[in-house]
């Protein structure tokens, strides 16, 4: 897997250096919404790496080399986790530095918010990647957008009810964070299993 991560690292650094720098800058700017953009974008890097693989037909060559199906699929997830983790850690570090400069007390909610956004970003990655492995990057993106539209529609229908339930149930933000982390882990494990299954079914 180290070889595959190295290959993606070389590819991304050379192809989209400027975007990676932007992710790092956005992640370092205090303010959750900008950091959130950085983390969501970081979670999309594996898709970009997959697109470059497709362009050079690397996938055909990789099947000839001693990589297991698990490591070929898993490397794209790990790449996403590393990218999101870097953005999240930078964002937390930026908050700590800001509180030191301003000489104010550091708020735990800051870290919790970053972790929640990181969870959202990795859930998006987990939903996205099986589509990419199934349909390829171009068609996979269309399938992903279709899913987002359906989910947004469902969210609009259910959203008010859920918001009402949450405001009445006094859910603590830290409890919400732990629930989100567990949910994210489960979704990712299911996604990896599905992607490996898709990948094993060669045409």
């Amino acid at each position: 897997m180290k070889a595959l991560l190295l290959k993606d690292f070389y590819t991304l650094i050379k192809q989209i250096k400027i975007y990676i720098i932007l992710i790092l800058i956005f992640a370092s700017i205090p303010g959750y919404s900008i950091a959130a953009i950085a983390m969501v974008y970081a979670a999309m890097l594996p898709i970009t790496a997959l697109a470059y693989d497709e362009r050079s037909k690397w996938n055909s060559l990789a099947l000839m080399m001693p990589y297991s199906d698990g490591s070929i699929v898993g490397s794209k997830y790990v790449l996403g986790y590393i990218a999101v983790a870097c953005a999240a850690l930078l964002s937390i570090a930026a908050q700590i530095v800001m509180s030191l400069i301003k000489n104010t007390a550091f708020e735990i909610e800051g870290i919790v918010s970053v972790i929640l956004v990181a969870c959202v970003a990795t859930v998006m990655l987990a939903v996205n990647l099986p589509f990419m492995f199934k349909f390829g990057v171009e068609k996979g993106r269309l399938a992903f957008f279709a899913l987002i539209i359906i989910m947004t529609g469902a969210g609009m229908l259910l959203g008010d009810g859920l918001a009402g339930f949450l405001s009445e149930s006094y859910v603590n933000i830290v409890t919400a964070m732990f629930a989100a982390v567990v949910f994210t882990l489960v979704i990712n494990l299911i996604s990896i299993a599905i992607s490996i299954r898709i990948y094993k079914k060669r045409v």
Partner: peptide, 28 residues
């Protein structure tokens, strides 16, 4: 133990032979 050369399936295009060597060192 198998060396393969495929027609029209290559390494990612931005890689240099030096990069390819490092990737392959971690492959084989």
């Amino acid at each position: 133990d198998i060396g393969v050369v495929l027609d029209e399936a290559y390494f990612p295009e931005v890689l240099t032979p030096k990069n390819v060597g490092k990737v392959m060192k971690n492959t084989y």
